[in-house]
């Protein structure tokens, strides 16, 4: 029955990265991304080191390269923007192959391409090796407010249910010969989105009732999966710590 699925990034498999505790991975990923973002744009060597580190992580996590490139497509609008920058940018200009390009614009394009690619890849490594419920538990452990993780948990739990309902409504529409494609035909689509909202809202009320029936008094119980051993931290933190050393060195030189 269920044809609509949201594919989270998780890649089934066994690897040293899969085995690491979720909160350790999330923390490592955040630290790494901030190291990349803080790296000055002239430090080509620093980005090269970061890229090598990340490639090592991708290998260790046994993430298929094809999958990785597929997910990098989310960057396309920004890549286009990056390619426009050398033409739009102000400041001094330089001649490349007969084109007059802004130096600032070239730097901007380079910065966006390098940092965004490294950032997305780091996120993918984390998300591809951590099951969704574990990411939520990891965020709990990292002291993200319970209200946020609880709402996110409900959202993820019911995403497929809501998409399934959306899909069935669309099938019902198609089966009666209506196939809206354009915005001026959006009325039917939006009307069914209205009933989708009502269904989602009413399900929210029923879920609340089911929670109350099992003794819910306004506080979500906390399930901690135990703390991570020092070894996990040490292993996971190698990548971001090297990245930060690189960043600091490149900032000082």
């Amino acid at each position: 029955m269920k044809t609509a699925h949201v594919h989270a990034l998780y890649v089934h498999g066994k690897s040293p990265v899969h085995d690491l505790e979720a909160h350790v991975k999330v923390a490592a990923m955040l630290l790494f991304v901030f190291a990349v973002v803080a790296t000055p744009r002239e430090a080509f060597w620093a980005f090269a080191v970061d890229a090598v580190l990340l490639a090592g992580a991708v290998r260790a996590a046994r993430i298929p390269v094809r999958f990785l490139f597929g997910r990098l497509l989310v960057l396309i609008p920004f890549v286009l923007f990056a390619f426009l920058l050398p033409f739009l940018g102000g400041g001094a200009r330089t001649e490349v192959l007969g084109l007059s390009l802004s130096i600032e614009g070239l730097w901007g394009a380079w910065t966006i391409l390098a940092k965004a690619t490294l950032g997305v890849t780091a996120s993918i490594v984390m998300a591809a090796t951590t099951e969704v419920p574990d990411i939520l538990l990891g965020l709990d452990r990292l002291r993200v407010p319970r209200l946020i993780t609880a709402i996110a948990g409900f959202m993820i739990r019911y995403l497929d249910v809501v998409l399934g309902e959306m899909h069935r409504m669309r099938v019902a529409m198609l089966s009666r010969g209506y196939d809206p494609r354009w915005i001026w035909q959006g009325r039917a689509l939006a009307t069914s989105a209205g009933s989708l909202f009502i269904r989602s809202y009413e399900r929210g009320e029923r879920v609340h009732q089911a929670m109350v029936a099992r003794g819910y008094q306004g506080h979500m119980p906390v399930f901690n999966s135990g703390s991570a051993p020092v070894g996990s931290w040490a292993r996971a933190m190698t990548v971001p710590s090297v990245a930060w050393v690189v960043t600091i060195v490149s900032l000082l030189t």
Binding site: V132, P133, L136, G153, R157, Y158, V161, R203, V207, Q209
Partner: peptide
């Protein structure tokens, strides 16, 4: 409806 009853991530 078990979808109403089963609301946690796992």
């Amino acid at each position: 409806d078990p979808d109403d009853q089963l609301f946690m991530p796992t």
